Amino acid sequence: MNFSTRLDEAMRKAGFKSQNALARASGVSQSSINRILKSTGISGPETTTVRKLADACGVSFEWLNDGIIGKSSSKDKEMERYALVYVNEVELKIITHYREATLAGQSLLETMAEDLPKASPPDAVNDES
């Protein structure tokens, strides 16, 4: 599997539906992402570009850059743990909006989420009788 194939796979698994969405989340221009996916560049992308794309997609730099599996960082292990969690359509929509938002937008969403009223656990005793 070459770099462009790995990037395409990482984009799909991360939930990016467009090159523009990945560009906004990673800070890499859409034209660069397009060039990478079409493999039209003379050489591969720069290291900083690969790091930005890997971070945005939640994959390791080693896997995206070289296809190396097994050099899992603690962040990769954390991402693997979350990958097994079921996400419904509404949650996926929220995650997608977060990933496509600017850094300021992501910060705003995080603040709003922290301030939301929390639901009671299903087995909690209701004192309001």
Rank of each mutant, 00 (worst) to 15 (best):
C57Q: 03
R12N: 06
A10R: 06
G70H: 02
T5K: 14
E114D: 10
S32R: 11
N2G: 15
L84T: 11
V59W: 02
S18Y: 09
D76W: 11
A101T: 06
Q106G: 03
G58N: 10
R35K: 14
L92V: 00
A113Y: 10
D55E: 13
Q106P: 06
D55W: 02
R51C: 01
Y86Q: 12
G27A: 02
L53V: 05
M11Y: 01
L22M: 04
C57S: 11
S32C: 10
V90F: 09
K75Y: 10
V87I: 09
G67P: 08
F16H: 02
T47I: 14
K52P: 02
A119S: 14
D76E: 14
T40H: 10
K77A: 12
S129D: 13
S4N: 15
Q30K: 13
R51F: 06
V125N: 05
L109K: 01
S32I: 02
T49L: 08
P117C: 05
A25V: 01
L84H: 07
A14M: 04
A10I: 04
P121E: 12
A119M: 13
K38A: 07
S120V: 03
I69K: 12
G27P: 01
L53W: 02
P122D: 12
R6H: 07
V28N: 09
S26L: 05
S29Q: 12
E62P: 01
G67W: 10
K118W: 06
S26N: 05
K71G: 13
M79Y: 10
T102E: 13
N20G: 15
S107D: 11
A25R: 01
T40Y: 12
D66W: 15
G58C: 08
E78Y: 14
S39A: 15
